[in-house]
Design a protein around this nucleic acid. Structure first.
Length: 498
DNA sequence: GCATGATCATGC
DNA sequence: GCATGATCATGC
């Protein structure tokens, strides 16, 4: 099809309604019906979108930075959702908008940018990525017209600010430091992650920067799905930011840090007093409750705040001992070895977790741990830098995968008390590799060569290994001495600033 | 009922 | 005093 034919085929659609009408024909129809060029037999990504463009709408593939229907200013996106373990609808991935052109984009305002033209009006066609079905039987089940003009004012400001954060990195000659987790709703995701060739030049530095694209984060898409697309019981979440003026000059992160740091150097008891509450400190999550109330006095769990969900911000509380060290390393959700061994690093759950999540580190210093009395020192946003992620963290992950595949050594050891603990040969904190692997359950449970150990249960506490043994569920931990470094570096950079 | 953030207890 | 395996308390 030549360009004239393309214009002809697209201009058949005279209005956005025409496009929606056509899109509705695809509801519940398996993709194989539209797969005219047999693309589903290949493994290339994104081909479901291509199939719909060709087979339903009748126009050829393109990777233009123009919207798919230029005369309507309308972009078409075919994108998957899934159901998580709690049976909640969840975006399977970020929504990629368009490539970042480091050499040109830096002097274009958000409103005039390629990015804006792609995000302004988007017809989103959602399909369920249901792994129990063959890909050819997937089908569109939701159609949603995303209009930037009609977004909540706050979301528009946050997205615009995110765009500026990314552009400012280019302007300052540090496009190589752009990270997806640096921004909140609009991200700069990598494209062609594995290839060393996927680097591009930038205007104000000789250092090559990774090829990246503007995208709506998967956490943002998840909230969009839950509150707007499925709209089952229009979730009304509490939100943190009410003063929109702040967002023209500050990021969400700035605002959160500022709010919390008004409590700098206050003891927990003093914070109780100034908030006119009394947090129950016997719970293991009492510091998190403090942070939640410091952010918004009416809430106990800031995880549920709208902005935290959309931006995938995770609160991490840190207690510093009197000797200046952190008592504990930092845990993450447990993983399944049978899943891990099937994955490749670049598509692994662990890598995705660190690329997609950002952390609000909240630092408390001990006064008297026996009374759970601490001083709040500061709070700051942190994310795992991609160069550490793809080197040191990757190494631990690869080691874990290798051992799981070849067989993890599990050794029962009888302690003096008579209790039996099971030693393993996974990466330990003492291996000094930034992260390590350790149990994460309610109780321990092992089954080695058919013999059971521990008071837990195989189903809830155990995780089956490729060789049939069962190990107590494990997770990746960030070493506490790596974290104390981050805290100290943050302290220094802040003190230089002032 | 279980996942998760967080912390405990033992032995070296 | 710390590393490691084990475990607690909460909320969905």
């Amino acid at each position: 099809m030549n360009i004239q034919d393309k214009i002809k085929s697209i201009s058949e659609y005279r209005s956005i309604d025409d496009v929606i009408k056509k899109a509705k024909e695809s509801l519940n129809v398996p993709f194989k019906v539209y797969d005219k060029k047999n693309r589903l037999s290949t493994r290339s990504k994104g081909n479901l979108g291509n199939i719909v463009e060709e087979g339903l709408f009748g126009y050829p593939l393109n990777s233009d930075q123009e919207p798919d229907f230029p005369h309507l200013g309308l972009e078409l996106k075919v994108t998957p959702f899934k159901y998580n373990n709690n049976h909640q609808v969840t975006a399977k991935e970020r929504l990629v908008l368009t490539m970042i052109n480091y050499m040109e984009d830096y002097n274009v305002s958000f409103e005039d940018s390629k990015c804006f033209h792609k995000i302004n009006k988007v017809l989103m066609l959602f399909y369920n990525h249901d792994t129990s079905l063959p890909k050819t039987d997937y089908f569109i089940s939701k159609i949603y017209l995303y209009l930037f003009d009609y977004l909540p004012e706050k979301d528009k400001l946050i997205i615009k600010k995110d765009y500026e954060t990314i552009i400012n990195k280019i302007k300052s000659g540090h496009a190589e430091d752009i990270s997806e987790a640096d921004t909140f709703y609009l991200g700069a995701c990598t494209k062609g992650a594995t290839a060393a060739s996927s680097y591009r030049e930038q205007p104000f530095s000789d250092i090559k920067a990774k090829k990246r694209a503007f995208s709506l984060k998967s956490s943002y898409m998840t909230q969009l799905l839950r509150s707007d697309v499925f709209n089952k019981n229009a979730i009304t979440e509490e939100s943190l930011i009410t003063d929109l003026k702040e967002l023209t000059t500050s990021t969400i992160g700035d605002i959160i840090e500022r709010k919390l740091n008004t409590y700098k150097d206050k003891t927990l008891s003093e914070i109780d007093k100034s908030l006119e509450t009394k947090v129950n400190r016997s719970s293991k999550s009492y510091l998190r409750t403090y942070i939640s109330r410091m952010l918004k006095s009416s809430i106990d769990n800031a995880d549920n705040l709208e902005e935290f969900k959309k931006a995938n911000i995770k609160i991490k509380t840190l207690r510093i001992n009197r000797n200046g060290k952190i008592r504990e390393s930092m845990s993450f959700p447990s993983f399944k070895f049978t899943e891990l061994v099937k994955q490749d690093w670049f598509d692994s759950d662990l890598r995705n977790q660190f690329v997609n999540e950002k952390y609000l580190f909240c630092v408390f210093e001990e006064i008297d741990d026996s009374k759970h009395e601490y001083v709040f020192k500061n709070a700051f946003m942190w994310f795992m830098p991609e160069n550490i992620l793809d080197n040191q963290v990757k190494d631990v992950w690869e080691d874990t995968k290798k051992k799981a595949t070849e067989g993890i050594r599990l050794t029962p050891k009888k302690q003096q008390s008579g209790k039996i603990v099971i030693e393993n040969n996974l990466i330990k904190k003492s291996d000094n590799m930034i992260v390590h692997v350790r149990p994460h359950t309610v109780n321990s449970y092992h089954r080695i060569n058919g013999v059971s150990y521990g008071k837990g249960s195989p189903d809830t506490d155990g995780d089956i290994l490729p060789n049939g043994d069962i190990i107590t569920k494990q997770c990746f931990w960030i070493n506490n001495d790596f974290i104390i470094n981050i805290i100290n570096i943050n302290k220094k950079s802040k003190s230089i600033k002032f």
